[in-house]
Design a protein around this nucleic acid. Sequence first.
RNA 1: GCGGAUGUAGCUCAAUUGGAUAGAGCAUCGGUCUUCGAAACCGAGGGUUGGGGGUUCGAAUCCCUCCAUCCGCACCA
Length: 654
Amino acid sequence: MNILQALRGRFDAVLSTMVDETAPLLEMIRPASDTKFGDYQANCAMPLKKKLGRESREIAAEIVEKIDLSDMCEPLEIAGPGFINIKLKDAWIEAQLAAAVTDERIGVPLVAEPKKYILDFSSPNVAKPMHVGHIRSTVIGDSLANTLRFLGHEVITDNHLGDWGTQFGMIIYGFKHFRDNDAYAESPVAELSRLYREVRKIIDFVDGQKALPARKAKLSEMSAELEERKAAPSTGDKGADKKAAKELQKLERQANEASKELTKDQAKLAELAADPEFAKLAAEHADISSAVLNETAKLHAGDEENLALWHEFLPKCREDIQRIYERLNVKFDHELGESFYHDQLAPVVDSFIEQGFAKESEGALCVFLEGFKAPMIIRKKDGAFLYATTDLATIQYRMNEWRPDAILYVVDFRQGDHFEKLFAAAKKWGYTDVELKHVSFGTVMGEDGKPYKTRSGDTVGLEGLLDEAVSRAEKIVRSNDKDGLLSDEQYKDVAQDVGIGGLKYGDLSQNRETDYVFSYDTMLALRGNTATYMQYAYARSQSIFRNGEIDIAALRSSGAKICITSPAERALATKVLRLPEALQEMVADYRPNQLTIYLFEELAKAYSTFFEQCPVLKAETAEQKQSRLLLCDLTARVIQQGLALLGISTVDKM
RNA sequence: GCGGAUGUAGCUCAAUUGGAUAGAGCAUCGGUCUUCGAAACCGAGGGUUGGGGGUUCGAAUCCCUCCAUCCGCACCA
């Protein structure tokens, strides 16, 4: 049972006799901010003061007078300006616990009105190796899918793979010019990946060199302006002078930075140029950028050779990505990539033209949207389509095929503008009765506060990240096992769960909207809000059952009851029963960290206290022992279920 | 320049979306192992929630204004 929902229902019955709109007031019933106020609190009397023109304490008294909660709660108390404090009856809590013990869903009800969700997440480019930037989308999307499903919604997950873009033009170009046949036969994906990097390297070099003169000119322009400003006489106005000085400082900083960047890039280019082999290669492929675009265009136009290569490469690339998903234990219902929508793009554009939503501007076909300065371009002047076009086609397909109530896009916050336009365009196009939501997230930063990169400045590969997390986890697990609990092989398995779990939890416990600093040490820490800590709490419970030789499944069905005999037990019991609320909170704004907050801050903390204060196997009576065993079991099950929804496994020993 | 975000303890982050005394972890200091896993627990110090003004019973949260940082801004995704 969702206790908060139940309480709100009772309050609704009373409040609806006093005001018309009760929903916002019911929102103000929540878990108590401090246990000394009870278990829950209702803050709805204060805002009614103006509306009803009476003192808020008096209003609170009226609510308390009229409400019927005698079965669930102790008599309500009014505090301060009109807070209504709610304390559950121990007997009622015990009845809820008894129900949860024998319930597979540990008391989490299914939603009354299931909705159909499409979840669009992960969406890597299949032609390049997955990198650190894909963690968040993948992990957040997966946890939301799990949770929505568990609550009873219908969820369709769709990995919108980038399998049709310029990256394939690059691979095709590389394959045609630089391939090593033996290496390709040996390990095709590794060779394709090498080709991608090789082409990328040449493009960066060629483009970088081309851009140098302009950058130098810009820099000297900046220096000139700097000199000019420095020489500028005082205006006599103190405020204006101060402002000028500040602008000068800013300009100076910018110039310094630009100069530093330029020197750095120049050094890099010089280093490459110094390699005679590479220099020769670069000279031979001086027009590589346009050549790559040309290969891409040919692919899109149905060129036989390129299409054949694409068909050859694609399954191999997908297999490679699949390996990572297997390690992460993430599955998709569909993986309809960009290529899937290829032949739907022209009709989409035609539809926009026909309905008068799109018009040409500077050669490009644009959708002008109210409230946006720049239009959304759906066809380039060279006739090619863009990702905006694909995204529109995707919405159309999903609506026709699945008729969802909502489509969630778990994508980087930097694409916020794009999605706002996309959603506005979709609405204009007629898709008004679907919730389109950009579930955005911040950047993964390095310890230097800049986007996470390797020392040499490359993006960090996801696979290496997983390896590192697992190997560190193994070290930690080994060094902490003084009693030799585990065999060598078991260490390896546990390290997988702890390492991958730590990585996922580290991400999910962060508020998704802000950037966060990536640190192995923090996410694999034994203390604090980490997967390791939660997994440990679970393992500890299993250890008790082992030591006491308890058949916990039998005990669950034996009819034994949980009895509250101490404050620590009561505190833990009320937290255990809050799982449905925590899931509700998580899903309300698609924030997995709401669940981690509950698991750690509330449940695990209460469990620790209980563990310290209440002997289980050495309890005073047989009844108490059974009761506490069941409470441990219930807590462990909530932890296990909560972690499972986050995509994290538990282990019996660690 | 325009638009969007962010700014909370020394550090990394929370804060149930306007609620009671702003919380955790790390770090620092002090206490707890012959007793179910000390990988743990208990306690202490540490804050003008970037500055200033406003809205109200009540503000980290909403409004205004400065300051700082980050991101996006017409044919990449």
